[in-house]
């Protein structure tokens, strides 16, 4: 075999390994009831409850659209963030402190394959949630849209990459697995609250301006844009996507600089 065909074969082998990693990441996720309930279950339960209690009301400053249009998009964003930021962040801390990452590092599995498996699995779970929430919104509450499917796909995809990178970066900042769950969850829910997940923020308000610097708010507004029924409003939220990309890039830099394979106790 020539060197080139050998290296091509190696690339295909590695891509097959990525597929296997995604499969086992999926198994690990769905077989862990707490992770599955807190990630997927929460978004579904919140959407159903909010839709049942206030779904028919309208938001004046969003051109009087039904608030459920906003909540469907908001909880799609929540699903992506919970999967990629919360779940990836906490599970990487736990795996590192248990010694699982060290074991992987000492195996022939290339590190990029492991990270591609984590990211790919987060993408699969995110897409499944987006479709499930869309189905619930449409069948249960008469949600319309998305009016720009491509814009929604791009927003979700960039969101997955950005928040997975943020999850990885956050995992490098937390030294022990006992702290990982509480710390990530508290930060996550406070930022979601400030970012207008539970209620649409008045554009131009102080809270909207401040949370606009954060990617949490940006993913919510980017996901909402394709569901925004106001005349003349574009489904493309480029500004939000650029802000997420910048956060994602910063998270990659932090991750590369701070990443460690070994538990802190050794």
């Amino acid at each position: 075999m020539t060197t080139r065909s050998k290296s091509t074969a190696r690339v295909f082998d590695d891509l097959r390994l990525v597929g296997r990693q995604i499969y086992y990441e999926q198994l690990s996720f769905w077989l862990n009831p707490i992770a599955a309930v807190f990630t997927v279950g929460f978004s579904v339960v919140f959407l159903v409850l909010l839709g049942a209690t206030g779904g028919k009301s309208h938001v004046g400053f969003l051109g009087g659209i039904p608030v459920i249009q906003y909540y469907v998009a908001g909880f799609m964003a929540y699903g992506v963030m919970a999967t990629c930021f919360n779940n990836v962040g906490v599970s990487l801390v736990v795996r590192r402190e248990m010694g699982l990452l060290k074991r992987i590092r000492l195996s022939p599995l290339p590190p990029w394959v492991m990270l591609a498996g984590v990211t790919g699995s987060a993408l699969v779970i995110s897409v499944a949630q987006v479709l499930l929430l869309l189905l619930i919104g449409k069948l249960g509450y008469g949600v319309t849209g998305p009016y720009n499917v491509t814009a929604l796909v791009i927003a979700i995809f960039v969101g997955v990459i950005c928040f997975t990178a943020l999850g990885v970066a956050t995992s490098t900042l937390i030294p022990n697995q006992e702290a990982a769950g509480p710390v990530v969850s508290i930060v996550f829910f406070v930022l979601l609250f400030l970012s207008g997940l539970w209620y649409p923020l008045q554009p131009g308000s102080a809270l909207a301006r401040i949370s606009g610097y954060l990617p949490f708010r940006r993913l919510i507004t980017a996901t909402f844009a394709p569901f925004d029924t106001r005349r003349g409003v574009s489904g493309w939220a480029w500004h939000d996507i650029i802000v997420m990309a910048v956060w994602g890039a910063a998270a990659v830099i932090v991750s590369v600089r701070r990443w460690r394979w070994a538990p802190h106790r050794t």
Binding site: L17, R20, Y24, L27, S28, L31, N32, M98, G99, L100, K102, R103, L106, S107, P108, L109, P263, T266
Partner: peptide
Amino acid sequence: RERLGVVLQELAVEPFLSVQQVLTRHAGYF
């Protein structure tokens, strides 16, 4: 690493997978 096996001091095994799944996954790295 293809030719090296390591048993670490710390107990490092994925809790939610079955014994067979854990081993099959690791075997796939080699």
